[in-house]
Design a protein around this nucleic acid. Structure first.
Lengths: 151, 151
DNA sequence: GTTGAAAGCATCAGAAT
DNA sequence: ATTCTGATGCTTTCAAC
């Protein structure tokens, strides 16, 4: 499905999606139109999902990152659906995963500081019905963070 | 530092960075040049870090996500630096955080399937020196995943 | 896959607020 | 400092091969 050129193209676009097709064509040794067609195909096949600007959390006062394990009191479908619905509504939650293990969910929370985190926990997360327990871990340092998948 | 228009602009660019300045100018009620100047300023101030293509993991055979807690045997600076260095080299590790709590690090791993995960653990992660213990959690379902920070 | 043309866009000067 | 209008050159896009 993806040949070597597609893979190299995706690597470049995952690093910098603002490069022109001309620059990409030069890099990959194809014509501008060939690059154009390949990108269109990758978009249509939904291999490329979207193009986004990544912003610097430290520059916008959102430097505090925490992960929370969450356990529900029960695992009935109603409770699960309701919880997941509420999670999607909360802007502070960037990611939420249903995971194996002692807890049910792992969520990634982004806020301004510890105080804002406390507020989030007290006023938002624990206000969701049917949450049994939570366990928070604070990020001391972000060692690595990439959106680029190696193919 | 950021006014309301900047915030709305950043929201739009975090959702879709391929929109033309014309479309953005229409959305925000400013001229194309005003949008252009604002974006350039946000780029120069490093508020916008980069533009990337996000690719669909399910379409490229990287559908297996796991989080691993990692504990080092010691916390001497040498060990920490070495571990973090190795982590940055491993393509399967998309994210790595130094965190508070029982374990030292939380890493996010992306591979093809359980078998590939086993391989990663045996041949790569646990080959790093000074790792004391690990604890893996498998992602059953990705409930939410966004790169967009709400301002 | 290619070239070449058309339309649309980013970018920049210059002037206004 | 931020905005606008208008001109230029580059990019994307598409038809034809």
């Amino acid at each position: 499905m993806l040949d070597e050129i597609d893979k190299r193209l995706l690597k470049l676009l995952q690093t910098d999606s603002k490069q022109t097709n001309k620059a990409l064509s030069h890099e990959l040794g194809l014509s501008v139109t060939a690059i154009y067609e390949r990108i269109k195909k990758l978009e249509n096949n939904k291999v490329i999902g979207k193009y986004v600007a990544l912003i610097n959390k430290k520059k916008v006062e959102k430097a505090f990152v925490a992960f929370c394990h969450v356990k529900l009191v029960q695992h009935s479908q109603d409770y699960v659906i309701k919880f997941e619905q509420e999670v999607r509504k909360l802007d502070e939650i960037l990611e939420c995963y249903h995971i194996s293990g002692d807890y049910d969910y792992l969520i990634k929370v982004l806020v301004k500081d510890m105080e804002a985190f406390r507020d989030f926990m007290v006023k938002k997360l624990t206000k969701i019905d049917h949450i049994g327990s939570t366990h928070s871990m604070f990020v001391i340092n972000e060692v690595k963070h990439t959106t680029a998948i190696t193919l």
